[in-house]
Protein backbone atom coordinates (compact mmCIF):
# COMPACT_ATOMS: atom_id res chain seq x y z
CA UNK A 1 0.00 0.00 0.00
CA UNK A 2 2.86 2.32 0.84
CA UNK A 3 4.32 1.73 -2.60
CA UNK A 4 1.02 2.55 -4.30
CA UNK A 5 0.66 5.73 -2.28
CA UNK A 6 4.19 6.69 -3.17
CA UNK A 7 3.61 6.12 -6.89
CA UNK A 8 0.40 8.12 -6.90
CA UNK A 9 1.97 10.93 -4.89
CA UNK A 10 4.89 11.09 -7.32
CA UNK A 11 2.52 11.14 -10.28
CA UNK A 12 0.40 13.89 -8.76
CA UNK A 13 3.49 15.91 -7.92
CA UNK A 14 4.82 15.57 -11.48
CA UNK A 15 1.47 16.61 -12.88
CA UNK A 16 1.07 19.58 -10.57
CA UNK A 17 4.64 20.73 -11.06
CA UNK A 18 4.36 20.59 -14.83
CA UNK A 19 0.95 22.25 -14.99
CA UNK A 20 1.94 25.04 -12.62
CA UNK A 21 5.25 25.73 -14.35
CA UNK A 22 5.78 29.48 -14.71
CA UNK A 23 5.98 31.14 -18.12
CA UNK A 24 9.33 30.65 -19.81
CA UNK A 25 12.12 32.90 -18.65
CA UNK A 26 13.11 33.59 -22.24
CA UNK A 27 11.00 36.68 -22.79
CA UNK A 28 11.19 37.89 -26.38
CA UNK A 29 14.07 40.26 -26.97
CA UNK A 30 13.69 43.91 -27.82
CA UNK A 31 13.99 44.28 -31.60
CA UNK A 32 17.31 46.10 -31.32
CA UNK A 33 18.75 43.23 -29.28
CA UNK A 34 17.28 40.49 -31.44
CA UNK A 35 18.42 42.24 -34.62
CA UNK A 36 21.39 44.46 -33.85
CA UNK A 37 22.68 46.62 -36.72
CA UNK A 38 25.93 48.55 -36.92
CA UNK A 39 27.04 50.84 -39.72
CA UNK A 40 30.53 50.94 -41.15
CA UNK A 41 32.08 53.14 -43.80
CA UNK A 42 33.66 50.89 -46.37
CA UNK A 43 35.83 51.33 -49.42
CA UNK A 44 38.63 49.58 -51.20
CA UNK A 45 36.92 46.22 -51.09
CA UNK A 46 37.50 44.68 -54.53
CA UNK A 47 34.37 43.39 -56.15
CA UNK A 48 34.73 39.69 -56.82
CA UNK A 49 34.06 39.82 -60.55
CA UNK A 50 35.92 42.95 -61.52
CA UNK A 51 38.63 45.45 -60.76
CA UNK A 52 36.38 48.18 -59.48
CA UNK A 53 36.11 48.86 -55.78
CA UNK A 54 33.15 49.01 -53.48
CA UNK A 55 32.52 52.16 -51.54
CA UNK A 56 29.54 52.88 -49.39
CA UNK A 57 28.10 51.83 -46.05
CA UNK A 58 28.05 48.31 -44.72
CA UNK A 59 25.27 47.45 -42.32
CA UNK A 60 26.44 44.56 -40.15
CA UNK A 61 23.58 42.71 -38.51
CA UNK A 62 24.07 40.44 -35.53
CA UNK A 63 20.95 38.32 -35.19
CA UNK A 64 20.25 36.53 -31.92
CA UNK A 65 20.09 32.71 -31.93
CA UNK A 66 16.60 31.51 -32.83
CA UNK A 67 15.69 34.76 -34.57
CA UNK A 68 15.60 35.62 -38.26
CA UNK A 69 15.10 38.65 -40.51
CA UNK A 70 13.04 38.70 -43.68
CA UNK A 71 15.30 39.64 -46.60
CA UNK A 72 12.62 41.21 -48.78
CA UNK A 73 11.23 43.40 -46.00
CA UNK A 74 14.37 45.43 -45.34
CA UNK A 75 14.24 49.11 -46.28
CA UNK A 76 17.00 51.72 -46.02
CA UNK A 77 16.95 55.48 -46.11
CA UNK A 78 19.88 57.83 -45.55
CA UNK A 79 19.55 61.31 -44.13
CA UNK A 80 20.43 63.96 -44.92
CA UNK A 81 19.64 62.90 -48.47
CA UNK A 82 22.70 64.70 -49.80
CA UNK A 83 24.42 61.32 -49.53
CA UNK A 84 23.01 59.25 -52.35
CA UNK A 85 22.95 55.48 -52.08
CA UNK A 86 22.07 52.94 -54.73
CA UNK A 87 20.07 49.75 -54.42
CA UNK A 88 21.13 47.73 -51.36
CA UNK A 89 23.39 44.78 -52.08
CA UNK A 90 21.61 42.00 -50.18
CA UNK A 91 23.15 38.54 -49.86
CA UNK A 92 20.82 35.80 -51.08
CA UNK A 93 20.06 34.57 -47.57
CA UNK A 94 18.52 31.24 -46.71
CA UNK A 95 15.57 30.17 -48.79
CA UNK A 96 12.52 29.00 -46.88
CA UNK A 97 9.27 27.71 -48.29
CA UNK A 98 6.20 28.89 -46.47
CA UNK A 99 3.02 26.91 -47.25
CA UNK A 100 1.00 30.11 -47.48
CA UNK A 101 3.31 32.88 -48.70
CA UNK A 102 5.54 30.64 -50.81
CA UNK A 103 9.29 30.96 -51.14
CA UNK A 104 11.13 33.69 -49.30
CA UNK A 105 14.61 34.32 -47.97
CA UNK A 106 15.71 34.99 -44.43
CA UNK A 107 18.89 35.99 -42.64
CA UNK A 108 20.17 34.33 -39.48
CA UNK A 109 23.15 34.89 -37.18
CA UNK A 110 25.16 37.51 -39.08
CA UNK A 111 24.72 39.29 -42.33
CA UNK A 112 26.26 42.32 -44.00
CA UNK A 113 24.24 44.48 -46.34
CA UNK A 114 26.09 46.93 -48.55
CA UNK A 115 24.61 50.31 -49.38
CA UNK A 116 26.68 51.62 -52.29
CA UNK A 117 27.43 55.31 -52.69
CA UNK A 118 26.16 56.66 -55.98
CA UNK A 119 29.02 59.13 -56.14
CA UNK A 120 32.57 57.94 -55.65
CA UNK A 121 33.55 60.58 -53.09
CA UNK A 122 30.98 61.25 -50.42
CA UNK A 123 30.67 64.60 -48.72
CA UNK A 124 32.04 64.54 -45.14
CA UNK A 125 29.49 64.58 -42.36
CA UNK A 126 27.37 62.57 -39.98
CA UNK A 127 24.74 60.49 -41.71
CA UNK A 128 21.85 58.52 -40.28
CA UNK A 129 20.67 55.33 -41.91
CA UNK A 130 17.06 54.62 -41.08
CA UNK A 131 16.16 50.96 -41.44
CA UNK A 132 12.76 49.34 -41.51
CA UNK A 133 13.08 45.65 -40.70
CA UNK A 134 10.82 42.71 -40.03
CA UNK A 135 11.63 39.37 -38.47
CA UNK A 136 10.56 36.57 -36.18
CA UNK A 137 11.57 34.45 -33.24
CA UNK A 138 11.40 30.91 -34.56
CA UNK A 139 8.04 29.22 -33.84
CA UNK A 140 7.15 31.81 -31.22
CA UNK A 141 6.28 35.23 -32.57
CA UNK A 142 7.06 37.84 -35.21
CA UNK A 143 7.96 41.49 -35.02
CA UNK A 144 5.77 43.85 -37.02
CA UNK A 145 7.84 46.26 -39.15
CA UNK A 146 10.08 48.18 -36.77
CA UNK A 147 12.37 51.17 -37.32
CA UNK A 148 16.05 51.16 -36.49
CA UNK A 149 18.72 53.79 -36.91
CA UNK A 150 22.46 53.62 -37.26
CA UNK A 151 24.96 56.41 -37.76
CA UNK A 152 28.03 56.62 -39.98
CA UNK A 153 30.59 59.42 -40.04
CA UNK A 154 32.41 60.39 -43.18
CA UNK A 155 35.53 62.25 -42.07
CA UNK A 156 36.87 65.38 -43.78
CA UNK A 157 39.24 64.54 -46.57
CA UNK A 158 37.77 61.06 -46.90
CA UNK A 159 38.80 59.22 -50.01
CA UNK A 160 37.40 55.93 -51.17
CA UNK A 161 40.51 53.98 -50.22
CA UNK A 162 40.67 55.31 -46.64
CA UNK A 163 38.24 52.89 -45.04
CA UNK A 164 39.21 49.36 -44.03
CA UNK A 165 37.92 46.42 -45.96
CA UNK A 166 34.95 44.65 -44.39
CA UNK A 167 35.80 41.78 -42.10
CA UNK A 168 32.36 40.32 -41.54
CA UNK A 169 31.26 37.40 -43.71
CA UNK A 170 28.32 38.08 -45.98
CA UNK A 171 25.58 35.84 -44.75
CA UNK A 172 26.07 32.47 -43.17
CA UNK A 173 23.96 29.83 -44.82
CA UNK A 174 22.52 27.22 -42.53
Amino acid sequence: MTRITSILATACLACATAAAAPPPADEPLDPDKAFHPEARLVAGDPVANGNTERHGIDIDYRIAPGYYLYRSRLRFEVSPPTLLIGAPDLPPGIEVNDPFIGKSAIFRERVTIHLPFVVSIAKPGRYKVKIIAQGCAEDRLCYSPFPQEVVVNIPPGYRVNDAPAPSVPRGIPR
Binding site: I4, A14, A16
Partner: peptide
Amino acid sequence: WLPFVGIGMLAALAGISLWLAGRHATP
Protein backbone atom coordinates in the same frame (compact mmCIF):
# COMPACT_ATOMS: atom_id res chain seq x y z
CA TRP B 1 1.82 -2.46 -9.03
CA LEU B 2 2.16 -2.28 -12.80
CA PRO B 3 -1.22 -0.52 -13.44
CA PHE B 4 -0.34 2.13 -10.87
CA VAL B 5 2.95 2.85 -12.58
CA GLY B 6 1.01 3.23 -15.82
CA ILE B 7 -1.45 5.64 -14.20
CA GLY B 8 1.42 7.60 -12.74
CA MET B 9 3.15 7.90 -16.09
CA LEU B 10 -0.07 8.99 -17.78
CA ALA B 11 -0.63 11.65 -15.15
CA ALA B 12 2.92 12.91 -15.58
CA LEU B 13 2.50 12.96 -19.35
CA ALA B 14 -0.73 14.91 -19.00
CA GLY B 15 1.04 17.47 -16.88
CA ILE B 16 3.93 17.77 -19.29
CA SER B 17 1.48 18.15 -22.18
CA LEU B 18 -0.24 21.00 -20.37
CA TRP B 19 3.07 22.70 -19.86
CA LEU B 20 4.11 22.20 -23.46
CA ALA B 21 0.76 23.55 -24.65
CA GLY B 22 1.34 26.82 -22.89
CA ARG B 23 5.08 27.23 -23.25
CA HIS B 24 5.07 29.56 -26.26
CA ALA B 25 2.66 32.09 -24.85
CA THR B 26 3.97 34.91 -22.70
CA PRO B 27 1.39 36.77 -20.64
